[in-house]
Design a protein around this nucleic acid. Structure first.
Lengths: 207, 207
DNA sequence: CAGCAATCTGAACGCCGTCAAGATGATCTT
DNA sequence: AAGATCATCTTGACGGCGTTCAGATTGCTG
């Protein structure tokens, strides 16, 4: 038996680490973060409650693996958004929309990603090197040109990131439903909020 | 015996609801959200694990009471910030700084507040009537004058709120430490990020 | 094939949220 | 003042949780 996608070692199970992360993500999607217990993950993967401990130090480490996958996929979403936009004037807003849409489409995953970050008081390191955060900064740099100080670029990126995160966490709030309808849908609402931030255009004329 | 601050009825305990909320907040402050169990709260209040159920339907309802207190205190913090600033040019930024400072000074409480909101997909209703959210909108209205459409005002308020929330959740991230130091402290960093949003000034010249 | 190390199981510990049944004691009626 | 009533609190229990550990199982190495 033991037919499975072999990554590095075909163990008893095949590749239990992989299966556990998949099981966790399935539970997250279908039942939400509240139902994600280590025992439930093990159950979903068809394995005893203690088995995960041979692959992850504890529950937290499993969740970090899940969160890592989330960040990778967010990277890709932003890359796609950036590549698919020609007009530089709307590129930044499109990036923001793509960010929020990722969070809206994967709410439980997004929550796990930030819960891990908050517990560590740090975003994943790769974000700053070549990840999603860097995509925002580069797009911002394209838009503003070369006459902008490094520190201003950094601060504007942080500001944009914060706005995106805030909107991502609030986009589903009931209070915004009438406004969404008035503007013709969630997409339009999103775009409108981003444009009212005015942060990207204003940025260059700051001082 | 039974000497205690009587609110509506002097019960066996005195006022256990009050004591439970206080105990919960104490645990939140001293041990963080992870340590906040209903049993620990009961223990802290010197009462059996089942006692809380005569005052709150379940754990969630107790946390909602805690969150409610948090929103009230956030209201007050924003009121104070608004009242203490004369210069209308810096009023909006000061409001944002006060918001983030509240979150930084009460991280566990702030987290409970938003966790409850996310579970209900709604901010507390009073926010829209005369609470903190309304303070932001009013300050924004002062700043922009009367020639602004209602919907633009609303969108700008949402944008500001999202930015504040995002920054509140990220302010403690390690990645920002060097930038904080470079700018001369967390306060200056905060102010700089808010100013780079440029959202308030840009708002009037949007379209 | 023998031994070893990696992997998995089963059972246990203490903690959790919650509930039902009973004890306690304040209040209300008469 | 006495007794009934009812909100309040305790005790004890249930199942689920994260985690650990001793032991069974399995694939790899020599």
């Amino acid at each position: 038996m033991t037919t499975a996608t072999v990554e590095s070692r075909p163990y008893h199970h095949g590749d239990l680490s992989r299966a556990l992360v998949d099981a966790a993500r399935k539970i997250l999607e279908t039942e939400g973060p509240g139902a994600l217990s280590l025992r439930a993950v093990a159950r979903e993967a068809g394995v005893s409650p203690a088995a995960p401990y041979h692959h992850f130090k504890d529950k937290n480490e499993l969740l970090e693996a899940v969160a890592h996958e989330g960040w990778v996929e967010l990277d890709q979403a932003l890359s796609n958004a950036r590549a698919s936009t020609e007009n530089p004037r709307t590129r930044m807003t499109n990036l923001g929309v793509a960010y929020v849409r990722f969070a809206r489409d994967n709410p439980a995953l997004y929550r796990v990603m930030y819960d891990r970050s908050r517990d560590k008081d740090a975003l994943p390191d790769q974000l700053k090197d070549d990840g999603a955060y860097c995509q925002v900064r580069n797009t911002l740099a394209e838009h503003t040109g070369a006459h902008v100080a490094e520190i201003d670029l950094e601060l504007a990126t942080i500001a944009a990131w914060c706005a995106g995160h805030g909107l991502a966490e609030m986009i589903s709030f009931k209070q915004f439903a009438p406004l969404k309808e008035m503007l013709g849908g969630e997409e339009a609402f999103l775009r409108a909020v981003f444009e009212h931030l005015g942060m990207f255009a204003k940025f260059t004329t700051q001082d």
